[in-house]
Amino acid sequence: MKCQLILSLLLLTTCFVGFGQEKGAGKSKKQNADVVEKGLTKISILYPYAEGKTFDMVYYEAKHMPMVASYLGSNLVKYTIEKGLSGGAPDQPLLYMAVGAFYVKSLSEYQAAIKPNLDAIRADFANYTNVLPVVLVSEVVK
């Protein structure tokens, strides 16, 4: 079961169409690739798929993620938005409808920025989904 979960999570990254929002638009592809560097903290917000659950990608991209990003200030390096397409294996059902991710320099600064805004962030969920997200905090190692 643990191996299946790990495999599913690894495959998850190959099963999404990304819509990245970066500071400093207009940089070359080489420079953009360097933005996600070793040691950054990544906060992934995963929205599990289930029958009858909904997700408004347009609202999420235009309103929710920019709102949260605005709270993070100069600690934010980049954020991305991904739309789930399918599970990792052929004919496997969709695991996640969407994934949002924030890449930040400091986890403690991220937490300090989010804490006073947590009620507003949670209240906004109803505007785009009826799913309770799963959050994963990780360190970029490569």
Rank of each mutant, 00 (worst) to 15 (best):
M57F: 15
M57W: 07
V58I: 06
V58N: 13
V58L: 11
Y59I: 00
Y59M: 08
Y59C: 05
Y59L: 06
Y59A: 06
Y60D: 04
Y60E: 01
Y60T: 05
Y60L: 08
Y60I: 02
E61V: 10
A62E: 14
A62N: 14
K63H: 13
K63F: 04
K63C: 12
H64G: 04
M65C: 11
M65L: 15
M65R: 15
M65H: 10
P66Y: 09
P66R: 14
M67K: 15
M67G: 04
M67E: 09
V68D: 10
A69Y: 11
A69F: 10
A69Q: 13
S70R: 12
Y71C: 08
L72T: 06
L72I: 06
G73F: 08
G73K: 14
G73D: 06
S74V: 00
S74D: 15
S74H: 13
N75L: 01
N75Y: 07
N75T: 00
L76W: 08
V77M: 04
V77D: 01
V77E: 07
V77L: 00
K78N: 03
K78M: 01
K78Q: 08
K78Y: 02
Y79P: 00
Y79G: 00
T80K: 10
T80F: 01
I81Y: 03
K83N: 01
K83P: 02
K83S: 03
L85G: 03
L85N: 09
S86F: 05
G87Q: 09
G87S: 06
G87A: 07
G87P: 08
G87V: 09
G88K: 08
G88A: 03
G88Q: 08
A89Y: 13
A89N: 11
A89G: 05
P90F: 09
D91N: 14
D91P: 03
Q92I: 01
Q92G: 02
P93F: 02
L94M: 14
L94I: 10
L94Q: 11
L95C: 03
L95M: 13
L95E: 13
L95T: 10
L95H: 14
Y96V: 05
Y96C: 06
M97V: 01
M97S: 12
M97C: 07
M97D: 04
M97G: 02
A98H: 08
A98K: 10
V99G: 01
G100D: 10
G100L: 05
G100F: 04
A101P: 02
A101R: 14
A101C: 12
A101H: 10
F102T: 03
F102L: 03
F102E: 00
F102Y: 15
F102S: 03
Y103R: 12
Y103K: 11
Y103I: 00
Y103A: 02
V104A: 02
K105H: 12
K105A: 01
K105C: 00
K105P: 08
S106T: 09
S108H: 07
S108R: 11
S108L: 09
S108Y: 05
E109S: 08
E109T: 10
E109D: 14
Y110W: 13
Y110S: 01
Y110Q: 07
Q111M: 12
Q111K: 12
Q111Y: 03
A112F: 07
A112C: 02
A112L: 04
A113D: 04
A113G: 04
A113S: 13
A113W: 09
A113N: 13
I114M: 14
K115V: 05
K115H: 10
K115W: 05
P116I: 08
N117V: 02
N117C: 08
